[in-house]
Design a protein around this nucleic acid. Structure first.
Lengths: 111, 111
DNA sequence: TTCGTTTATCGAATAACTACGATAAACGAT
DNA sequence: ATCGTTTATCGTAGTTATTCGATAAACGAA
């Protein structure tokens, strides 16, 4: 079922989709957590966030669906870690987007 | 009324809020449009997007509330333009966030 | 096998987002 | 003062997001 948002350029849609994954402080906090513990972390994320376990699980699912985080089963628990390559791609996408915004000499504030 | 998302660090909340403003292809398209026409544009945005005028007006409101766009009344129409300084700040915020993610030597993929 | 731990999913409630048409408000021009 | 143009807002509808508690599923250990 195509939504209205699909009528835009694919690259804008892709960037918007990943921006949406970043559009919640809990998910940003999770990303920072996963980066801080240089390797990866399992359910300690729940202890570090003021959210219920099921809520954290949902946020992790969003991040996984956005391709930013990977989870591998490790015994009874699950080990989550950042997808470093995906993060880099996202970083580049944002950098490109912002770079495109200022080829203009931004002479004086318009209006 | 404080929501659950307010319990996170203020900087994460601020970044998440602006990421949310970018989390729709129409709003990204609007930002690109405003940057392309080096100065600013009024209602031509509506003509360039496959959306109703009222919908575009809402998206513009979101961008204004995020502080990324300014609108000044110009006769019967309104002139919108990017807030170049706010864009720069947002760019920096994203850059900082991503930079923080990779102080690790990213030895080998964990897990 | 049974128990405890860990994670995912379901169900449900509330809130927010996206979208449109219709209408109102502001303004210049006639 | 009235008309047409432009933009904002309102009302509404449908979808999606956020959150929690409760429950299920997976697994190691006893």
């Amino acid at each position: 079922m195509p939504t209205k948002a699909d009528q835009f350029a694919a690259d804008l849609g892709a960037l918007a989709a990943q921006a949406k994954a970043l559009a919640h402080p809990a998910r940003l906090a999770i990303i920072q957590l996963l980066a801080d513990r240089d390797a990866c972390v399992c359910g300690e994320i729940v202890d570090d966030l003021p959210l219920a376990q099921s809520t954290v699980s949902r946020h992790l699912k969003v991040l996984k669906e956005a391709g930013l985080v990977q989870g591998t089963v490790d015994g009874p628990s699950v080990c989550y870690c950042l997808d470093a390559e995906a993060i880099r791609v996202l970083h580049d996408r944002f950098a490109d987007f912002f770079a495109q915004l200022e080829p203009r000499s931004t002479p004086d504030d318009c209006c």
